[in-house]
Nucleic acid binder design. Structure first.
Lengths: 136, 136
DNA sequence: GCTTGACCTTACCCTATTGGGAAGGTTGAT
DNA sequence: ATCAACCTTCCCAATAGGGTAAGGTCAAGC
């Protein structure tokens, strides 16, 4: 790569983070404020783009903005211990697990209801009956 | 139950939907506008409370507001076919499945990374290294 | 009859994440 | 000189709620 400087659109293409979100991350303090050109355009270098890629990957793994903020601190901290990062990751795995369990419970309950429903032209429907029931 | 009329707090307790959300659902057109007392308090009857319970149960199953709106129409439509409801439910199960699959992918990738990480006091961390990689 | 606490009203801001678009300035190429 | 493509800031949309403030109402107790 010969070019070392990018405006926001190029940085977005190179990192996979939309220009919209790059501005938002800057506003949120997740990334440092970009330097500006004479015409007030944001200017990024390869290091900045790498940080954006880092964020993108963490996003893809479902980390929240706060968690990413912590990961970024750890990333740039030369003295960090890998155990700090690992515990953040483990914490996040537990959160993912909770959500998965929840969704599985919904799915199995709903599947049960669907299997009860004859699903034909008759108006009688066990799914709605169940939703309308007074007991939880 | 001897009382037939409720104000919003009683309706909230009886239905499990917060007063806040009852007002929001009304504003969103999910439920009809409540009648009002002389002092402009919202007044609910058993039928209204049943509808709120219906919404609550659908919420618990992860249905979105739009989906619930459809379910409510079907619920009050005497001529509906159970197949209409069933297809809505099946559609929702597929959506739940997608989310579950997505979360599982995140979890396994993150678990892989965590297992690579020695997690001790050394600064070298495969998790961060991976996040910082340029390739997706 | 008055006070007090519990309840109600509207209206606004906040959480977290992302997309869309308007109005206007800049850049680069024809 | 013009035009497309880009940039800027600012506001609004969606998801599903929570919080809080300022003010009105109701019922109980004194």
């Amino acid at each position: 790569m010969q070019s070392d400087l990018y405006n926001i659109g190029q940085a977005a293409n190179a990192s996979g983070v939309s220009a919209k979100m790059i501005r938002r991350y800057e506003e949120a303090g997740l990334i440092p404020k970009a330097s500006r050109s004479l015409s007030d355009y944001r200017v990024y270098n390869d290091k900045n783009v790498n940080m954006l890629r880092f964020i993108r990957h963490a996003r893809d793994l479902g980390f929240s903005a706060k968690q990413i903020s912590s990961l970024l601190s750890l990333w740039s901290d030369q003295a960090r211990s890998s155990s700090e990062v690992k515990s953040l990751a483990v914490e996040h795995i537990e959160l993912l697990d909770q959500k998965i369990t929840e969704l599985n419970a919904m799915k199995s309950e709903l599947t049960r209801l669907v299997n009860c429903c004859h699903g034909d032209a008759r108006p009688d429907c066990p799914i709605l009956d169940n939703l309308a029931q007074n007991k939880v």
